[in-house]
């Protein structure tokens, strides 16, 4: 766990890393829309290709991206099986009279679903988690939600809460690890025994962790007040987000890609989703 910050930000120097985080949030949403617009075989081929191209451009090693897909394999496998066995269609593959009926449509559905989830994960990963630091991300969200201020939504407060939360996840992880080690050094055992015993074994970790988290919160709020923090009004930023031609160009590319996917939906090769 050591040294890996939340969100798996992967430092590298690529075009995507340098994009304006606000654009990256929008690009992610657009890309997700693209994955759902996709209906035809050619469309899915283009989508998969685009995901691979994104990985290539971002200069993030393929194995790192695949690693983030791994925890979702269970879900993917489950939907795959559901799709194969429960889809109804016209082209029956299994011989007549078998108790299990598998249709060609079911297999297409399953494959498309798999490709869609793969593109979804790589797309959001490449545009957001791998290439954007958590701090940039909260800045971007705050900036994008600014219009809501007119409706008296405390956008700045939410953004601040989010960045503090993200900031403290690694700190608390480290703290948990330390406390666990300290209790292990006193012979605590977290890995064996009945469910009840294991739940009880967590008490020596949870109590010190809560105590220190609350202390930390108090200290942090004191420190913020000492530096005259009083909410977002009139606050200026150290790093002002600025967009340039590259950001607009990337937006145009993704929009065109979406339009392309829509057009490719009309190509009638292979199976097309209804």
């Amino acid at each position: 766990m050591k040294g890996i910050s939340f969100g798996q930000y992967y430092p590298a120097d690529s075009v995507i890393h340098r994009l304006d985080p606000r654009f990256k949030v929008i690009l992610t949403i657009l890309y997700i829309v693209c994955t759902f617009l996709c209906k035809s075989l050619v469309g899915f081929a283009a989508l998969t290709l685009s995901a691979l191209v994104l990985i290539f451009i971002s200069r993030i090693p393929l194995r790192i991206v695949l690693r983030s897909v791994r925890p979702l394999l269970m879900i993917i496998g489950f939907t795959f099986i559901i799709n194969i066995f429960w889809s109804r269609g016209e082209q029956l593959i299994t011989p007549e009279g078998w108790p299990i009926r598998i249709y060609a449509e079911g297999i297409w559905n399953a494959v498309y679903m798999f490709l869609r989830i793969f593109a979804l994960i790589t797309g959001t990963g490449i545009f957001l988690t791998y290439t954007t630091t958590p701090m940039d991300l909260t800045d971007a969200i705050e900036s994008l939600l600014t219009p809501l201020k007119k409706l008296h939504v405390p956008v700045h407060v939410f953004a601040m809460m989010m960045s503090i939360t993200l900031r403290f996840i690694p700190t608390l992880t480290e703290e948990t690890e330390k406390i666990m080690n300290a209790q292990k050094a006193r012979g605590a055992n977290f890995t064996s025994g009945s469910l009840m015993q294991r739940a009880k074994a967590l008490i020596p970790i949870l109590i010190p962790l809560f105590v220190s988290a609350i202390n930390r919160a108090v200290e942090l709020s004191n420190a913020m007040e000492c530096r005259c923090y009083h909410g977002g009004d009139g606050r200026t930023r150290l790093n002002v987000l600025r967009c340039n031609g590259r950001d607009w160009a990337s937006l145009a590319i993704v929009v065109l890609f979406g339009a392309g996917i829509l057009l490719l939906n009309g190509v009638g090769i292979g199976y097309t989703l209804g």
């Binding site: 080690n181 006193r186 220190s212």
Partner: peptide, 11 residues
């Protein structure tokens, strides 16, 4: 083993 700031381990 007595860790750094061991008082945080009291519960």
């Amino acid at each position: 083993l007595v860790m750094q700031y061991p008082e945080y381990q009291l519960f």
